[in-house]
């Protein structure tokens, strides 16, 4: 078995330590080592966005980040978004707008939308569509997702 490296990172506001092989992606580490399965594997090559999360304040595909690269970094996943007694406004907007069907792409869309609204709190519909183009959804036709993000922005 390949050698494992000890990594310390900040995950959803908490310090976390884990061991991983260099070849394990951040997505694999989250899912298989830390059992945080909110980020999903849809393609494992950066083309669907189901594994989107925020690394050091920037949206990334976690399938294209090595676990070892997160040493000393800050990772935000969908599991860290809601307060204990209250959903994040983007999560609320997704529910209110029925912006999910099967839900597999939803965590990625929500993290992508959060990264958008963190940098651009009042996006136009086109800006939302441009920003979210890396997140594929096959169920909704995107209509209600785009509306949910616009709603969350105006909330």
């Amino acid at each position: 078995m390949a050698r494992k490296t000890h990594v310390q990172t900040q995950l959803n506001g908490e310090p976390v330590e884990f061991l991983c092989e260099a070849r394990q992606s951040l997505l694999e580490v989250l899912r298989d080592e830390l059992h945080l399965t909110g980020a999903k594997e849809g393609c494992n090559n950066g083309n669907c966005g189901a594994c989107s999360l925020i690394l050091d304040g920037r949206l990334v595909n976690s399938c294209l980040v090595l676990g070892v690269e997160t040493e000393g970094k800050t990772v935000e996943t969908v599991e860290g978004l809601a307060a204990p007694d209250k959903l994040h406004p983007i999560q609320e907007a997704f529910l209110e707008n029925a912006a999910l069907q099967c839900g597999i792409c939803t965590p990625g869309f929500i993290m992508s939308a959060k990264a958008l609204l963190d940098t651009n709190p009042n996006p136009t519909e086109h800006e939302v569509r441009y920003w979210l183009a890396g997140n594929l959804c096959r169920c909704t036709g995107y209509d209600k997702i785009v509306r949910a993000v616009l709603d969350a922005a105006s909330a």
Binding site: V78, L100, G103, P107
Partner: peptide, 14 residues
């Protein structure tokens, strides 16, 4: 809905 927007819903691979 809440399980699916918080990442808690368990799909097959999870």
């Amino acid at each position: 809905g809440v399980d699916k927007v918080t990442g808690r819903a368990l799909y097959g691979a999870d």
